[in-house]
């Protein structure tokens, strides 16, 4: 049941939650965190729903702040759901009207659960420096989504400049399935990797993070190429015995092929918001791997730029012409495979 409070205060909201809880007999709650969502009217419903779904895994209090600035008297309206409809946790949706829109932190602070972690999530636009934001400053974990902002790559570079331990971005979360599959591919013996090509649709912050991560983990040149999408479409790791290739043209099923064995279809779905936020809430400690990848993200490379940093080593075929490198990326691996001298070990 949704309780609606108009022209209310944080104190009254807390009282209402406690009464509601009492009414349904849930006196002890065992909640593990408070999740604050800062968003607009358009996205509040999807974001809150995704978060309540993950509350099944992480019982939490969800506070959705919806600033409605404008030339009206400051006013706080609340929709409160305890139990039932919105999932197992407590959900408070707050509309902050007029000047109050600027003071979300003053509303959120009294609603935080005592002595448990606070997570803040900006599903769309985020502050330039999340940790310096008054609401962001209350949280251990600050979740942003560069891909949802108007200029994704610009947003990602802002994340990089403003990074503080505890920041994370859903663009990074989206790379997990790729990273897991690539790591699994290298669980088997493989010849040294000389270079990597990543292809993705234009201005994809996940691809930029994946590129930076591969570069820092493998220590080889990683080029980013533009494709038609959706999202990331392929990662090719070149070795002297041939390429280890993971492709996903349709945004659902991937195909993994490696020298010496048959290729396999692998599930590589683009995940929805509730999966992503569920993964984010699983760990609340600083994500060092993300920090490292983020620090390696550079200004989006034009095609020429990608071509300008090929591997110096001799075993990498020289591009015939620097333009067209991006286009020929798909063909190259096979020619390299043929010229390979040693065969991939098949145990």
């Amino acid at each position: 049941m949704t309780t609606r409070l108009e022209r209310t205060t944080a104190g009254e909201i807390v009282r209402t939650i406690n009464e509601e809880r009492h009414r349904i007999g849930a006196t002890a709650t065992g909640m593990v965190l408070t999740l604050i969502i800062v968003t607009d009217e358009e996205n509040q419903s999807d974001a809150t729903r995704a978060a309540s779904f993950s509350a099944m895994e992480h019982p939490c209090r969800i506070i959705t702040l919806i600033p409605r600035p404008g030339r009206v008297d400051p006013q706080l309206d609340a929709n409160i759901d305890v139990g039932d409809t919105m999932g197992p946790g407590e959900t408070v949706r707050l509309r902050l009207r007029g000047d109050l829109a600027e003071h979300g932190a003053s509303v959120a602070l009294p609603l935080l659960l005592p002595d448990t972690p606070v997570v803040v999530w900006w599903p769309t636009a985020a502050p330039d420096v999340p940790s310096a934001d008054p609401i962001g400053a209350m949280a251990q974990r600050r979740i942003t989504d560069a891909a949802a902002s108007r200029h994704p790559m610009h947003a990602l570079l802002q994340r990089k400049d403003g990074y503080l331990a505890g920041d994370t971005d859903l663009a990074w979360t989206r790379t997990t399935v790729w990273r897991a599959m690539l790591a699994a591919a290298l669980d088997q013996p493989f010849a040294p990797i000389s270079a990597v090509d990543v292809s993705a649709e234009r201005s994809n912050p996940s691809a930029a993070l994946l590129q930076a991560w591969l570069h820092s983990a493998l220590g080889v040149p990683v080029a980013l190429h533009r494709s038609q999408g959706p999202g990331i479409t392929s990662v090719v790791m070149h070795t002297k015995t041939g390429p280890i290739e993971l492709t996903r043209p349709d945004g659902r099923t991937g195909r993994l092929s490696r020298p010496g064995t048959a290729s396999h279809d692998v599930p590589l779905p683009r995940r929805d918001l509730r999966d992503l936020i569920g993964e984010e809430l699983r760990r609340l400690d600083p994500d060092d791997t993300y920090a490292e990848a983020l620090s390696g993200v550079e200004i989006p490379s034009r095609r020429k730029k990608a071509a300008a940093k090929p591997a110096p080593s001799a075993d990498r075929a020289k591009p015939a012409a620097s333009e067209g490198r991006a286009k020929s990326a798909a063909k190259k691996p096979s020619s390299r495979g043929r010229s390979a001298k040693t065969a991939e070990p098949t145990p």
Partner: peptide
Amino acid sequence: EYSNPNPLRSPTDRRLP
């Protein structure tokens, strides 16, 4: 001559299953 351990796995990277 084949590189191992896996360079893409790191103990601090706890997202990877």
